[in-house]
Design a binder for these strands. Structure first.
Lengths: 341, 341
DNA sequence: TTGTAAGCGTTATCAA
DNA sequence: TTGATAACGCTTACAA
């Protein structure tokens, strides 16, 4: 079923059908009615490829996600879901490309084959080959996260440095003098993963400002790793009374380690950080934390991308998200830690 | 940059470039070399829309996921990741459509607009309007999960009935006489979600076979719901000594409720079920459970779909997955439950 | 108010 | 071994 068939059945020309569909030219009420009826009966819808070829746009956005090998974090999943939803709201489809490094077949196909009108990139590195590639090809794109030099591109990012800094100040205000940062995995940080670096920078700065003693450790994104990490922290650094983290997936493990050590939160130990709301609320007691609005961020990324597509030469826009730290129940005044069980 | 440009630069005709690219006609070594060089220098790749229009296929698969409003479960996320990865391996792209009920704009656009060569459908209901629609349009499709009457379609599904049955038998063998099933959410079951119904059927059958007393309850896919559900179960049914579940997301909550009640697993209480491996391993003690191989299933779904696309008239294929129950440490001999704390 | 026809970038048929 | 050309289904400038 194509537009010619519809035209024939309605007894008009193909262009009239096209115009009736797009509304870019007036069509008499009677003709329009007939056409619409035929279309409804036939269940016709324009062929996307033909339309894309003619119009030079695909009505499709590309979403580059981390390769499937690594499990997506809840936050990343939130980005994906909200991007897809926001795109659907404006009748755009989303093409997924699981691409990590450069020279990825899927990535190249999506970009060079003109399969999409624009691209949203997730899990950005400070130096990111994919960003360079997109700039080279002139494809409109927006990143969730940002590179080391993000001035000339549009992005949406969480202000990890600022937020972790605020966490540290919050803990310092409560009297904590010895605190730790539990970061994302060693590999991720080594690969130049922005949030890891910026959280560390924010931590280091704030610790220096408040003249605290601060220890930063990496931790894989897993329950078991979180547990091991916290156990070691408690064992090796008895003076530490509080932790800030950006590693939500490790949170249940940290909780276990604290439970096992017989430490009550927040009486004996405080914990806070930057995590998706759902993790903060599942913690016990509920975690005082900056809730990353992943759902909103995906929608904003789509918004920025649509603008870049509409006006490629307009000034890039930046959204540095710094949600308030929701005061829940996991931080309290510092007290000497009781000896571990 | 298009094929005409390449032809001009290489001093040949467009068809020769096309044939050099596809290999469907012999091209002299010298000509091919020249063409390949020009293509490499120009970074040319065929326009996907033009190709799709001409060839009548898009080299794209559609993946219909639950609407973004509901958080995807880990298992669903595993499906998505593995589908995308398997598709990428054979150079196919994946278009995401967040569609729940019928008459969904995104769904209709993907199907009727010939945007994809075939569709993979997730979270199937026993009666599913989307399945009916796909059959109506003749679009090749494969479901992950199955309807009430899935004979004439290709699908991959977990044998929830059989597996939950085996869990019950396992518990019965250990001497448990009073057991409960913790199912997925009330809404999901009410909507005719297959796994919920089939797990219940398997539970009921096995309970009858072994002459046990069985109680089935629904529980939302959340930590807090799992906790509330288990607390109520423990309070209202003191004789129950074991639980089987297919609700992985509620598992941490169940664990909390058991901990809070001072019940040791498996000494005082046994728990088993059908969940993604990661949840089973994060449980404490590690959960005796059938590990759903989500990663494998997505790849199998792609495999089946490719076959339906290649030979639409061939007999549909079915894959009922029944992984072995991995004996870990969460089930043990029945003992009277100690009084709750 | 409607129709005719060109052209988007490919692939594949027919000729040479 | 290669080239010219039609066709895929659509949108839109130009004509009527």
């Amino acid at each position: 079923m194509n537009i010619g068939e519809i035209a024939r059945l309605a007894g008009v020309s193909r262009s009239t059908v096209s115009y009736a569909l797009s509304g870019r030219r007036t069509v008499s009420a009677e003709t329009r009615r007939r056409i619409e009826q035929v279309i409804a009966e036939a269940g016709y819808r324009p062929n996307a490829a033909a339309r894309a070829l003619k119009e030079g746009r695909t009505r499709t956005l590309g979403l580059v996600i981390p390769p499937a090998s690594r499990r997506l974090t809840d936050m990343q999943l939130g980005f994906v879901a909200s991007v897809v939803e926001a795109a659907a709201r404006v009748d755009l489809d989303v093409l997924l490309s699981p691409s990590g490094g450069d020279h990825d077949r899927s990535f190249e196909r999506v970009i060079t084959g003109q399969r999409v009108d624009g691209v949203i990139l997730m899990e950005i590195r400070l130096e990111d080959a994919r960003v360079a590639r997109l700039q080279q090809t002139g494809t409109p794109f927006v990143t969730i996260g940002r590179t080391a030099h993000p001035e000339h591109m549009s992005w949406v990012d969480v202000d990890y440095a600022g937020l972790i800094g605020r966490c540290v100040h919050h803990l310092a205000d409560l009297g904590h003098r010895h605190i730790a940062l539990i970061n994302r995995s060693q590999e991720l940080v080594a690969a130049g993963y922005g949030p890891g670096h910026r959280a560390l920078a924010g931590f280091t700065d704030a610790v220096a400002q408040r003249d605290l003693s601060g220890l930063a450790v990496c931790c894989a994104d897993e329950t078991t790793a979180g547990q091991a990490c916290m156990e070691q922290l408690l064992a090796d650094h008895p003076q530490i009374t509080a932790v800030a983290t950006i590693n939500e997936a490790a949170l249940p493990g940290m909780q276990r380690a604290l439970d096992d050590a017989g430490l009550a939160v927040p009486r004996d130990f405080s914990i806070t950080g930057v995590v998706a709301q759902h993790w903060a609320e599942d913690f016990r007691p509920p975690l005082t934390a900056a809730d990353v609005p992943a759902h909103d961020m995906g929608a904003r990324a789509v918004e920025l991308l649509l603008q870049r597509i509409a006006e490629p030469t307009s000034a890039p826009r930046h959204l540095l998200i710094a949600p308030p730290i929701a005061l829940r129940a996991s931080t309290g005044p510092s007290a000497a830690r009781p000896a571990g069980r």
